[in-house]
């Protein structure tokens, strides 16, 4: 499978934080979800991909091209939503459309207006009158309206209510329905990712701790809940992490089927990405 995005050994050092050897590939036509705590390095990675932060080491290739040398060609085909809004507040959506026409060769005013309608955003209202959710929708509409082949989205659903999130997720899925489009998106709202992401990359303290297909994670991983006595019978190699609560042990296992076959412990729950994150970060080895 062809990759639209290849990241190899990306490192970046700050005084109090370090990205360590971030390496992953995003295959064409797929959605990759990027999860991790606040400050884990998601946004830093995304900014490195977009060449917004400088002086990092490692190799980043987008559409097979170097992201620094060929950034003009690449940017034409990328749609971006960043966590912080970058439009001046006094502009209106119409102003944005006019500005973008000058920036992107493929800017599609009609498409942009259709999205505005779909999101019920008025084209001639100043952005400062927009709510947080409306601003997010405006950014998403902007990111999509120049026919990009790759969407890079940092927290695109934050600040949106469940209905708006469903709307936006639908739009993302329609976007990749066209064969050659792909999405990298970071989100705290992991249920969005559970549904639509093909791959999950989990980053913690600047390092990738898990990189798997979503199905592998959700169908295979499990949480065993047991008593201390039962916990003591479990071999150290058979679990990833565990957490002791007041009444029980929560144990993260990589393959619930194998575990069930080996141990006589009855409660094995399906995992959610939230559970996984908490246990991976807060659990003990």
């Amino acid at each position: 499978m062809e990759n639209v995005l290849e990241i190899k050994n990306l490192c970046k050092k700050y005084d109090n934080f370090e990205l360590k050897n971030i390496t992953f590939n995003l295959p064409k036509g797929m959605i990759m979800g990027f999860i991790g705590e606040n400050g884990a390095g998601k946004t830093t990675t995304i900014k490195a991909i977009l060449d917004i932060i400088k002086s990092y080491s490692g190799e980043i290739k987008i559409f097979g091209l170097d992201n620094r040398k060929d950034d003009k060609d690449i940017k034409e085909d990328i749609g971006v939503v960043l966590d912080d809004m970058f439009f001046p507040e006094i502009l209106t959506p119409n102003d944005i459309s006019n500005t973008m026409k000058g920036i992107y060769k493929n800017w599609d005013s009609k498409m942009f207006n259709d999205y505005l309608k779909e999101f019920s955003l008025l084209p001639n209202k100043q952005i400062k009158t927009f709510s947080k959710g409306m601003r997010k929708k405006l950014e998403i509409a902007t990111a999509l309206s120049h026919h990009p082949k790759l969407l890079i989205l940092d927290e695109p659903t934050s600040g949106l209510d469940p209905v708006a999130r469903a709307e936006v997720i639908d739009i993302f899925q329609s976007f990749i329905e066209k064969d050659d489009c792909s999405i990298l998106l970071s989100s705290h709202i992991t249920t969005d990712l559970e549904h639509i992401a093909d791959y999950i990359i989990f980053i913690n303290n600047g390092e990738i701790v898990l990189s798997k297909t979503t199905n592998e994670l959700l169908d295979k991983y499990g949480i065993v809940k047991c008593t201390e006595k039962e916990f003591k019978t479990i071999n150290k190699n058979d679990y990833v992490k565990y957490k002791k609560t007041k009444y029980e042990y929560e144990v993260l296992v990589e393959n619930k089927k194998d575990f069930k076959a080996k141990y006589n412990i009855s409660v094995i729950d399906k995992i959610t990405l939230d559970d996984l994150m908490v246990l991976m970060i807060k659990g003990e080895e």
């Binding site: 959605i31 997720i169 639908d170 899925q173 329609s174 990749i176 329905e177 093909d198 297909t213």
Partner: peptide, 19 residues
């Protein structure tokens, strides 16, 4: 339906419908 259309309509990932 194609893999991608089915994924979109069922709100699941492309890998799921592909599998």
């Amino acid at each position: 339906p194609s893999i991608r259309t089915l994924a979109k309509d069922l709100r699941c990932s492309v890998i799921t419908t592909k599998n």
